[in-house]
Design a binder for these strands. Structure first.
Lengths: 206, 206
DNA sequence: ATTTAATGTATACAACTGTACGCTGTAAAG
DNA sequence: CTTTACAGCGTACAGTTGTATACATTAAAT
């Protein structure tokens, strides 16, 4: 049986996406990739690219999307692990650091395009981050019943700090990785504790 | 009197540096600039570039350096302002946000090259950040006499969060800027308060 | 069975890049 | 005054880029 047209197209599309991910590394950002480079890596003719994406931008947004999905899947597993453990913070941070270790390309993409030159990219990455922030804020609010706004501000700080620890992890030796994780955990505990203390003050005043 | 040779060279060098800064914007990162583009903006011949810098990388490192100097100068002014005020955190964050507003190009550069493709750039930006972190850690340690390590972790979290607020500020409407500043201030207070609480626990245990 | 439509290719081109080479003018050194 | 050294320019070249156009193949629609 020969492949259907749609199937074959999907295969080629995947080749392009995978090729692009493969090309990302410590010293290669998405914006530094050329269309031809991607098609070369994918093993197709330059013009064939246009049969699947209008732009390098469109491909990039697809990558961000896929990266986001992968990240969310992993963090869902983290939540399962949390149920067996005492420390939410520790499990979450460690899971995230594992993700970065296992698929650094995805994190490279998100990290760099978060402050990149394309507004569409920035928005896309921001959306992925918001996903985590909202979820974490819900968790916090549900657990400690803070005001919504406070929970969100707290969640945001936490996500940013974990993200930052990930960024540092990319450049550091594997030996220092553990230390980096511990640092992030301490930082999140500062925030959790501080938010706790300050929200109690608030309630007394009211 | 005609200009001395060294003087004229310095002038041209400045033209290159200024041109590069001028070209940086929301949708133009340093790594996306070409050598020819910079020389065009500077009003010199492409080859003249080499009389002053070996590389675009060398120019870029110079820009990071200059940006760092400008930033440090401003924060020194902030410290003067602090003496007249009660809130260290508020003054520092507001001063930083003003800096970003006044010279966004410098911040763009630091923000993007912090996670860019050049190791030298990343190290250079990291050095600038360390400068703030160490200084802030000293301040914290002196004021609350924390353990050195704890103060550093706390300072790092603070600097990261302020830097992040700056990143968000670049993309937001001027009206939301105030709100962003307040958010960062709250986040830093969480950290300050949390670190306080946790270090007291530590002392009791010892 | 014939036509249609779409995936993929090869060729081509103009734009842009970094930089090598050689020249000019002139400040500085002798 | 003569010589040297060097900032700056013009030309040139090979390499890369995005993409327009035309064409081949073949699954799907008629």
């Amino acid at each position: 049986m020969t492949k259907s047209r749609a199937q074959q197209k999907e295969i080629t599309r995947r080749q392009i996406i995978d090729a692009a991910f493969r090309l990302l590394s410590l010293d290669r950002s998405y914006s530094s990739l050329s269309l031809r480079e991607v098609t070369r890596e994918a093993g197709i003719a330059p013009n064939s690219f246009y049969r699947h994406f209008e732009d390098m931008e469109e491909l990039g947004l697809t990558l961000v999307d896929e990266g986001g999905v992968a990240l969310r899947q992993l963090m869902r597993k983290a939540r399962q692990r949390i149920e067996d453990s005492s420390s939410v913070i520790r499990i979450s941070v460690e899971t995230f650091m594992e993700f970065i270790h296992n698929s650094p390309q995805v994190f490279h993409l998100l990290l760099r395009e978060r402050s990149g030159t394309s507004l569409a990219f920035r928005k896309a990455v921001s959306r992925e981050l918001q996903y985590f922030i909202v979820e974490l804020a819900d968790y916090i609010q549900h657990r400690q019943n803070y005001p919504t706004e406070d929970a969100r501000i707290q969640a945001e700080a936490m996500v940013i700090l974990v993200f930052n620890a990930g960024a540092e992890a990319l450049d550091c030796k594997p030996a220092e990785l553990k230390q980096l994780t511990e640092k992030a955990i301490i930082q999140l505990r500062y925030i959790a504790r501080g938010a706790d203390a300050l929200s109690q003050v608030k309630r007394k005043v009211h």
